[in-house]
Design a protein around this nucleic acid. Structure first.
Length: 865
RNA sequence: GUCCGUGUGGCGGAAUGGUAGACGCAUCGGCUUUAGGUGCCGACGCCGCAAGGCGUGUGGGUUCGAAUCCCAUCACGGACACCA
């Protein structure tokens, strides 16, 4: 007999699919459509197991929907702009464009052997001028629609490299290359008015029923709608023009517990003081060294500087509070100024302790008033508390009601007004980098900032740039900046900032519907294919990418590039877990590092790739060859620096794509992390080999009927039902478990060859979404018609799914002690009679009657004694 | 620090208010094979000779009944706006 030969089988069937153009998406008004999309990859150069997992899941859905009669769109492209290409150019020479397109070619070649049902004719990269030219056109439309504007914003500035740093490039407040202390610097930048859509983006979340609840919750918190009070404090001893300080608070009920006010280092008052007071200048400069990320600000030690300025409490002119500049106040949230209530806010309390400020209580717990000691008393907003310094005397209220009352009271007394505030900030898209989509505007001395004419698009990146010095090569280019003003025709200069790569990925899903149209989208195509019916990707994109895409779809609708139904572009979202692997290492003692002697006991850690180690007889792992033991760290996300990576190319070479697909789907639920293990991959291969062998044997057998035909067919219908249900519910691991069961049942069945062949063909159909090559091979072996890829999904016969007898477990006080077998539809009274006659029940009751007898028909019985 | 998740045998997991551990891996026993890191058959949560008891991170609660719902707590992971 022949051997199972995945390499031969896979090449053969991929060629057959290609020849039949089986995966070309066709607009067919007679059919329902289904658009499956996986988050497109960044072309780093190699595919990794995370890609294999993501695209295999999408492929299961795409193939399953096609079998159910949908006209399926399943495209692939490349998120191709970004910093790694520039870093590669700086480190190894070469050009970002060559590096990127080279990587795309490599990755496409690595991906194709997976046998994904992708329509490759729609492929594009975001760095194709054809793509980013349309993006520039939309930028101009958005500018004209008032969705784009310029304002000053802070960036991380590396004073040695003289370049802007991404947050990722700031490590412990220092530039990653230069090691210099990072400064904050203000630049004029381009922004999208996403905050205009705060309320709409928030409300529309309620309609996204097929998104994970956790993602909707994260977006809700990110948008951060809050109702609060904006209140003006009058100042004492402030410079001219600063006689009032506007403060925003979400807890106006604690206004009577104020003990200080604090402003952001970027607040106009701080800016003013900075110019006139060296102590303030020094402190503010120190604050700016923390960087721009919210995370860094929150984690930094809370510090403040007393400005000497005082503000009067709005309810008591004689009550003065000191004004601090504090490093933890964000200029972008509220008014950039707060009042501190240490008694009821932990951060304020820490601050008050540090600077020896009072902390008067406003409320106490209803039962047993608790004084503020080590911790601030912060009850949830819904818990009632007794106000001891409220606006209306002693009263018991929840925080929520007290906030409303406080706002009403302040408004009535002319002290401030209730305002709704959002945490969501406008989207800054300017990047001072080369490898991105040029922002299509022109700076003219006469006309100011003018959008480029659409007929001049795309504004293409120049190829002749150098990366031998830091900063944006577009700024240094000898000729690229020079252009004519689109308004007056006089000599003018191009904008040299490029767009955030998140812009590129905010509309690629729409472009896939008409990838080569000479407008951003083709209305007929977009109308047919949108929305994405199922979007699949990593949870790390839960907020930014998905929120930006939701905004961008609305902007595209407003500028006429998408139909109204597409303003929520992703009908269903699935967030997959990561692929992890154990880490192998040895700690080796070293006497010296470089030419420096190290103290005794100093060790260096060396990591090993999985293929460099093997399991020893003792159960531990050893390095191949040397047989020296290696230590093992439990599985973590695959990462090159820890060498816990497995190259999909090697797995496909050794076992075939079907094995890689089968294993990565089988071992964990899709939303959770999956650990790649060599043993698991081998087991998957063995199972597929077994299925193939079973099919080969059946292909040759004769066809007498057998006594077990009926039972086998019943098992088949049950499997059809269960596998279909599991795939619908994105439970691919369960679908595979059911396929194992059917395989086992089939191989042991006491049935005739004809029935077995029928079940094997159905098994092949059910396996098609996961292991399409093996399924085609079996289908062909057993005389299936055409390609199994194009066969209609099998249907379970409902009559075959019902069991006549059911086993009812009998619990005694909730613990299972016995069971009875009864006809499926037996009445409760009769079941009770049988239960009370059960040996175990009789013995335990010992003559007395049960306190209660609960019968859940068809499920369970509980006897309470 | 803030927001959001996850936690079940030796391991991945199944069961989402009703028999905890489906299915797979590992392990152990048996059979086949010239041989096998092959194939097939069987056992397999923990304690216990057994009867039986215990058991879903930890502590409490709701319920006839809790892995599942609620409260608290611990551990691990993701996001934090210029990584993609």
């Amino acid at each position: 007999m022949q051997r199972f030969d995945p390499a031969g089988i896979e090449a053969k069937w991929q060629a057959a699919w290609e020849a039949g153009q089986v995966f070309a998406a066709r607009r067919d008004p007679a059919k329902p459509k289904y658009y499956v999309l996986e988050m497109f990859p960044y072309p780093s150069g190699r595919i990794h197991m995370g890609h294999v997992r993501n695209y295999t899941m999408g492929d299961v859905v795409a193939r399953y929907k096609a079998a159910q009669g949908f006209s399926v769109l399943h495209p692939m492209g490349w998120d191709a702009f970004g910093m790694p290409a520039e870093n590669a150019a700086m480190e190894r020479g070469g050009h970002p464009r060559d590096w990127t397109y080279g990587n795309i070619a490599d990755m496409r070649a690595q991906m194709k052997p997976l046998g994904l049902s992708i329509d490759w004719t729609r492929e594009f990269a975001t760095c194709d001028p054809e793509y980013y030219g349309q993006q520039q056109a939309m930028f101009i439309d958005m500018l004209e629609a008032g969705l784009v504007y310029r304002k000053n914003a802070v960036v991380n500035w590396d004073p040695v490299d003289m370049t802007v740093l991404a947050n990722e490039q700031v490590i412990d407040g220092k530039g990653w290359r230069s090691g210099a202390e990072v400064e904050r610097r203000e630049l004029t930048q381009w922004f999208f008015r996403i905050s205009d859509y705060s309320e709409e983006l928030l409300e529309a979340l309620d309609g996204l029923h097929n998104w994970p609840e956790k993602v909707r919750l994260m977006q809700r918190n990110w948008i951060g709608k809050s109702r609060g009070l904006q209140v003006a404090f009058s100042t004492v001893g402030a410079p001219d023009g600063f006689d009032r300080l506007e403060v925003y608070t979400t807890r106006p009920d604690t206004l009577m517990g104020a003990s200080f006010a604090a402003i952001s280092p970027d607040h106009p008052l701080a800016r003013h003081l900075e110019r006139h007071n060296p102590a303030v200048a020094e402190f503010v400069a120190e604050c700016r060294r923390i960087g721009t990320s919210e995370e860094a600000l929150e984690k930094a030690e809370k510090r403040g500087l007393d400005t000497g300025i005082r503000v009067r409490h709005p309810f008591d002119n004689a009550w003065e509070l000191p004004v601090y500049i504090a490093n933890f106040i964000l200029m972008d949230y509220g008014t950039g100024a707060i009042f501190g209530c240490p008694a009821h806010d932990q951060r304020d309390l820490d601050f008050a302790r540090k600077y020896d400020l009072p902390h008067p209580d406003v409320f106490v717990a209803v039962e047993g008033g608790q004084p503020v000691e080590a911790e601030a008393f912060v009850p949830p907003k819904t818990e009632p508390v007794r106000y001891i310094r409220g606006f209306a005397g002693d009263e018991v209220q929840t925080g929520e009601a007290a906030v409303d009352a406080a706002i009403a009271f302040c408004e009535a007394n002319g002290v401030g007004q209730g305002v709704t505030n959002y945490r969501l900030r406008d989207w800054g898209i300017s990047r001072q980098r080369y490898w991105g989509c040029p922002i299509p505007v022109v700076h003219c001395d006469t006309c100011g900032v003018v959008p480029e004419k659409k007929e001049n698009l795309p504004i293409e990146l120049p190829y002749d740039v150098s990366f031998d010095q830091p900063g944006n090569p577009l700024d240094r280019h000898p000729t690229w900046r020079a252009c004519a003003c689109p308004a007056c025709g006089q000599p003018a200069r191009r904008e040299t900032d490029t767009m955030d790569t998140f812009v590129d990925s905010s509309w690629y899903y729409a472009r896939f519907t008409s990838p080569h149209a000479d407008t951003p989208t083709d209305p007929a195509e977009a109308d047919y294919w949108m929305n994405v019916d199922q979007y699949i990707g990593g949870i790390e994109h839960a907020i930014l990418h998905l929120l930006y895409s939701r905004f961008f779809a609305r902007a595209m609708h407003r500028t006429g590039h998408l139909p109204a139904k597409a303003i929520e572009p992703f009908d269903a979202l699935f967030t997959q877990g990561m692929v992890t692997h154990e880490i192998y290492y040895q700690d080796v003692s070293v006497a010296q590092v470089g030419n420096q002697a190290m103290p005794a006991g100093t060790t260096r850690r060396f990591y090993f790739f999985p293929e460099q180690v093997e399991q020893a007889q003792t159960g531990g792992f050893v390095e191949k060859g040397s047989n020296l033991p290696v230590q093992v760290i439990p599985a973590q996300k695959m990462s090159k620096s820890k060498k816990n990576v497995v190259d999909p190319v090697n797995i496909i070479r050794d076992f075939g794509a079907d094995t890689a697909r089968w294993f990565i789907l089988s071992d964990s639920p899709p939303e959770r992390d999956v650990e790649w293990t060599a043993a698991g991959a081998e087991a998957a291969f063995k199972h597929l080999t077994r299925v193939w062998r079973l099919a080969s044997e059946l292909a040759e057998g004769d066809a007498p009927a057998g006594p077990g035909d009926a039972a086998l067919l019943k098992a088949m219908h049950r499997a059809i039902h269960e596998v279909t249900e599991a795939i619908d519910g994105f439970a691919f691991n369960k679908a595979i478990a059911k396929l194992y069961e059917l395989t086992n049942t089939l191989s042991k069945a006491d049935a005739g060859a004809e029935a077995k062949r029928q079940v094997m063909r159905t098994l092949a159909q059910l396996m098609t979404p996961m292991v399409p090559h093996l399924a085609e091979e079996i289908w062909a072996m057993l005389g299936g018609e055409g390609l199994v890829t194009q066969a209609t999904w099998p249907k379970a016969d409902p009559a075959m799914l019902v069991e006549d007898e059911v086993v009812l477990p009998i619990q005694i006080n909730g613990k299972r002690r016995s069971e009875i077998s009864v006809p499926r539809d037996m009445g409760t009274a009769e079941v009770e009679k049988l239960v009370l006659a059960d040996d175990t029940v009789v013995r335990v009751l010992a003559g007395s009657a049960p306190k209660k007898l609960i019968v859940v028909p068809g499920r369970i019985v509980n006897v309470v004694i």
